[in-house]
Design a protein around this nucleic acid. Structure first.
Lengths: 121, 121
DNA sequence: GGATACAGTTTAACATGTTAAGTTAATCTG
DNA sequence: CAGATTAACTTAACATGTTAAACTGTATCC
């Protein structure tokens, strides 16, 4: 189990749940479609993840008033606490990986993966 | 659904099942641990995949005589037929992707992913 | 204004990812 | 040689990936 997963496992969330929390933390309240896009998740996966996060009390969902098909997902104080308790360590772990691979190669990898993802083959 | 998945779906196998078949096709009969290593799959996943492939009649498993913990997995004639019926098209699809990304970038991506995998973070 | 198409999510079903625990056979050690 | 350890898989349990279908509001268009 990689160090990230160990850390998150201790915190009680999975990698994908963590990713969703971070996206919300960085962008503020937003709708599932946008979250899925930024967290690189398909909507059916996100649906389940949001249900889990909601049952854990880490996020809340409210129906949009203007368009009742649409939701707005927000982080709860508990969710914020979990994020700030782990953000620093999470960043350090990825920085360490970046150093291990070499910054250039690490950045190149992210670029290439992003390019591949955009090709949507 | 990407073109590879479309093709394999028509053939009745998943990407992972296809990967296992190709590894066996290239190396001949081999044991699950080696297959898992070459196909980049964890053993529990491979166990289920081999069960599926066996139930489809695409591979057979026999217990090793010298070490009865160990198995030897082989492709059946039906498995070979499926491989030769799809190998050419499969290669073309990946060649096309390689061209779309540019050979250099495609090769670089494979290198970097392999490097990341070896770091086993 | 009602049938119809479209948008945003959710459900369902099946396959794999991931970790821990279980099983059986081989090997090591005192 | 008996008991402990290791090896090779398998099972189990839970989470996500992936595709198709369903569901519920909104917008459209004759």
């Amino acid at each position: 189990m990689g160090p990230i997963r160990v850390m998150l496992s201790d915190a009680g969330v999975t990698e994908q749940q963590w990713r969703v929390l971070r996206v919300l933390d960085e962008n503020g309240p937003m709708d599932p479609t946008s979250i899925a896009d930024q967290a690189v998740l398909l909507l059916p996966s996100l649906t389940r993840i949001l249900q889990k996060l909601e049952s854990k009390g880490l996020v809340t969902r409210i129906q949009s008033e203007t368009d009742r098909r649409r939701q707005v997902v927000s982080v709860t104080p508990e969710g914020s606490a979990l994020i700030s308790a782990n953000l620093e360590a999470s960043i350090q772990i990825f920085d360490q990986l970046r150093m291990q691979m070499g910054e250039d190669r690490y950045d190149a990898l992210l670029d290439l993966l992003s390019e591949l993802n955009d090709l949507d083959i």
